[in-house]
C-alpha cells in the first residue's frame, strides 16, 4: 500500500500552496469596499479559496487522489448532502417574498372564485 504514499516533496508543495492561498484570502478580505455586490463577491471568493484549500488537503494529505473509486464517492457524498441541506433551506430564505398585498391579485368575487384566475 505504500504506493499510495506521495514523496515528501509533494506534501511540502501542497503545504506551500495552502499557505499562499491563506495569504491570498487574507489579502482579499482587506480590499476596502462598502458596496454590497462587491462585498458579496469578496465573500464568495473567500469561501471558494477555502474550498480549494479543503480540496488540496483532501486530495493529497488524505490521499484521495490515489484512492479507490469508493473513497472518492464516500469523500464526496457528505458534501453533496450538505449541498442539499444548504440549497433547499436557503431557497426558503431567499424567496420569502413580502407578504400580503404585494401580490396584487385581482379581487375574487363571491361565487366566481373558480374563475378568478
Amino acid at each position: 500500500m505504500s504506493s499510495q504514499a506521495n514523496p515528501v516533496k509533494v506534501y511540502i508543495r501542497v503545504f506551500i500552496a495552502l499557505l499562499v492561498l491563506l495569504f491570498l484570502t487574507v489579502a482579499l478580505a482587506f480590499v476596502p469596499t462598502r458596496h454590497e455586490t462587491a462585498r458579496n463577491l469578496l465573500t464568495t471568493i473567500g469561501f471558494t479559496i477555502a474550498g480549494t484549500k479543503a480540496v488540496l488537503i483532501i486530495l493529497w494529505f488524505m490521499h484521495v487522489k490515489a484512492g479507490t473509486r469508493l473513497t472518492w464517492i464516500f469523500a464526496a457524498s457528505a458534501f453533496v448532502w450538505l449541498l442539499i441541506l444548504f440549497a433547499l433551506t436557503m431557497n426558503d430564505y431567499m424567496t420569502r417574498k413580502e407578504i400580503a398585498n404585494v401580490y396584487r391579485v385581482p379581487t375574487v368575487r363571491a361565487g366566481s372564485m373558480n374563475d378568478a384566475r
Binding site: W81, I84, L88, T95
Partner: peptide, 17 residues
C-alpha cells in the same frame, strides 16, 4: 432527503419553497 419542507407548508416558509 429532498422533501422535508412538506412539514412546513403552513409554517411561514416561502410559497416558492
Amino acid at each position: 432527503f429532498l422533501v422535508w419542507g412538506h412539514h412546513m407548508f403552513v409554517s411561514g416558509e416561502s410559497m416558492y419553497s
